[in-house]
């Protein structure tokens, strides 16, 4: 009994960390540009296809292919920002969101044309053999992915809160006008954020897809990252870890205990219920920036 519970909870938590990782890409972009990127999952897919192309397609060894994949993903992020968003700084949230939806459709189209619709095997980057502790069975890719997610969150938090470059980006995240008046290049900050967001998505793709198969359906992970980001509060990177774990455990338990009773899908819609609930009771999430009103 308890073993079963732990199995659901621990695996849920690890999957939650993966959501958190994908959400990090989303939040990095949102902070800098205030673009609510609905195409975040598509960035994961693009990252996935780049990795697939370099490893299984071109036959490069992984230690060579992965850094190269990051580089290509960075270029993709940069190009997207230049082409679609650089002209939109200061435009309404609505028009930005519309552009991200357009981007989503566009990327799907391009992926389909370039890579075709067939299911591809994804390289096994993490060992497949699960780790078994008592009744708990943990896939190694999830475990390493979870650890990696935590490390990346800590690194990003440190970068944005402690380093000079990171603080500069945080400043432009907080207020474009103020940052600009200090001579900070807001454009550069936003471009850097898209580059980072795109690379993080590729890391997410590697963990999520390792040893599985790759189609554009993988983009659905981007949609679950959304409620995680909202739960954390859109500006907090460290908060994503906690939010991811909460979301993952809740989902894991619901899938384990509720889905068999009601015949499925409670687990997959629960995150969105939580999201709507959060938006009602605490729109800034657990750790987001509250508006400071001083009179």
């Amino acid at each position: 009994m308890i073993g079963e519970f732990l199995d659901y909870a621990i695996n849920g938590a690890l999957i939650g960390l993966l959501y958190a990782l994908v959400a990090m890409g989303f939040v990095v972009i949102y902070r800098a540009s205030k673009v609510f990127n609905f195409a975040q999952g598509e960035l994961v897919v693009v990252g996935g296809f780049i990795v697939w192309w370099l490893t299984l397609g071109m036959g490069l060894p992984w230690y060579f292919a992965i850094p190269l994949a990051f580089l290509l993903a960075a270029i993709v992020g940069y190009v997207i920002e230049r082409l679609f968003f650089s002209k939109l700084v200061g435009e309404s949230v609505f028009s930005m969101v519309m552009v991200t939806i357009g981007l989503l459709i566009l990327i799907r189209g391009i992926v389909l044309v370039v890579f075709g619709a067939q299911v591809r095997p994804f390289p096994t980057i993490f060992p497949l053999k699960p780790i078994i502790i008592g009744d708990v069975l943990i896939p190694q890719s999830l475990l390493y992915g979870g650890i990696l997610a935590v490390i990346i969150a800590l690194a990003l938090s440190w970068f944005f809160n402690q380093t000079r470059t990171g603080l500069k980006m945080t400043a432009s995240a907080e207020d474009h006008q103020v940052a600009l008046s200090m001579g900070i290049s807001v454009r550069m900050s936003i471009a850097a954020a898209w580059v980072m967001g795109s690379v993080i998505s590729t890391i997410g793709a590697i963990i999520f897809l390792s040893g599985k198969s790759l189609t554009f359906l993988a983009s659905e992970i981007g949609f679950i990252a959304l409620p995680v980001a909202l739960l954390a509060g859109l500006e907090s990177i460290g908060g994503l870890i906690l939010a991811g774990i909460i979301m993952g455990v809740v989902q894991g338990l619901a899938e384990g205990y509720l889905d068999p009773i009601v015949g499925g899908s409670v687990g997959s819609i629960l995150p969105f219920f939580i999201m709507v609930f959060i938006l009602f009771v605490r729109p800034t999430g657990l750790f987001g920036w509250k508006t400071i009103e001083r009179v």
């Binding site: 809160n161 000079r164 603080l167 500069k168 945080t170 400043a171 907080e174 207020d175 006008q177 103020v178 940052a179 008046s181 200090m182 001579g183 900070i184 500006e235 920036w289 400071i292």
Partner: peptide, 25 residues
């Protein structure tokens, strides 16, 4: 350098971090 009207601090940062950002050049 232009100090804008309305005391535009970086609200969510500490005083010291505001200064660090000011020294970005």
């Amino acid at each position: 350098i232009h100090v804008m009207e309305g005391r535009k601090v970086l609200q969510h940062m500490t005083v010291e971090k505001n200064l660090i950002v000011g020294g970005h050049v």
